[in-house]
Design a protein around this nucleic acid. Structure first.
Lengths: 174, 174
DNA sequence: CACATTTCTTAAACCAGATCAATTTCTTAT
DNA sequence: ATAAGAAATTGATCTGGTTTAAGAAATGTG
């Protein structure tokens, strides 16, 4: 995002694997990724990780319910590459109240795009097979396919790495 | 929602089954439900219906990508009960640009709550069994459980009516 | 009221995707 | 370079949920 409505942000360098927000914590920050890539995820009872979101360069990531409403974070946010992130403090969000109209509208726009993306993902999960979701992923996020380990993509798609491997094999044989 | 930022809305009475927005159309309106209940859904290749959202009294429903960005609607919106809805015209949304700060913030808040709910649903779909999702549904939307046919709830949960029936039988036997 | 239509349930066969376990790449650090 | 761990593939087996089909219960409608 050029022309960021939040100008006075602190930069943070994090190593791959660093946890920026752990489930259950109260989130003080939202993160904008300048370089590298973050993920947010939940763990089920069996300890299996399910990826909610990837955030490569230019993307925001946070636990919105925690960041906006002070709730306990439902997700964990961690770096999957060495990354550089901008910290957007809750107080900055509070300051939205006194933000210029134009910045507020841009903020609103970002939020709306977020909803649109979430809705698309929801529809895919509800109505498509694993193969269809994978095909959508590689066309929607071609650069991420190159970059991310397949097991993370599988987790995002809601399938096991083993099954993704089979899906890919089947696609390759065509 | 009390204190609606959009005051000058037109009311519409619709019979059960009425389609307010069909997939592929350009959505002119977002709908606020005053009475009754709407649904938005997609159909897969097999013609099976998958419910994206229910909108009972007080809820908003629209195809955001169509409403905000003029895209073709991905979902169909229809009444599942005789309903009364408020029409929020695109032009009203455009007028956000000249909206008082306070109204814009309220608008933003609604949008953020929407994201939070979508995220919760996504996490449930990714990490829970059909039974867990049903249990969450009956605690989160107890009034809808009374009111809606089970086959619609099954569609919302991402399972077949037959399997929901089995889940309920299993739960009842405890 | 009776009849039609839709909804809900039950059961058996079936399938997409999971699990478990072993093997083969691919990374990464030393 | 090489060792060691992590990622990816493959095969065998299993399971949560689907499909198909049929009957039972509820709901609407002339």
């Amino acid at each position: 995002m050029t022309n960021n409505p939040f100008q006075d942000l602190k930069t943070l360098q994090v190593k791959k694997g660093t946890v920026l927000l752990a489930k259950g914590q109260h989130s003080r920050y939202a993160y904008q990724v300048v370089k590298g890539c973050l993920k947010s995820y939940v763990e089920d009872e069996a300890g299996k990780e399910h990826i909610v979101q990837f955030a490569p360069e230019g993307w925001y990531i946070s636990d919105m319910n925690s960041f906006f409403n002070g709730a306990e974070a439902a997700v964990t946010i961690a770096a999957i590459e060495d990354s550089e992130v901008l910290l957007m403090d809750r107080s900055l969000h509070e300051r939205a109240k006194s933000m210029p109209q134009e910045d507020l509208l841009q903020y609103l726009k970002i939020t709306q795009n977020n909803i649109i993306a979430l809705n698309k993902r929801l529809i895919l999960l509800l109505s498509s097979t694993a193969q269809e979701r994978y095909l959508d992923f590689i066309t929607t996020y071609p650069s991420l396919v190159q970059r991310l380990p397949l097991k993370l993509i599988a987790s995002y798609l809601g399938i096991t790495p083993e099954f993704l491997s089979r899906v890919r094999k089947k696609l390759a044989s065509k």
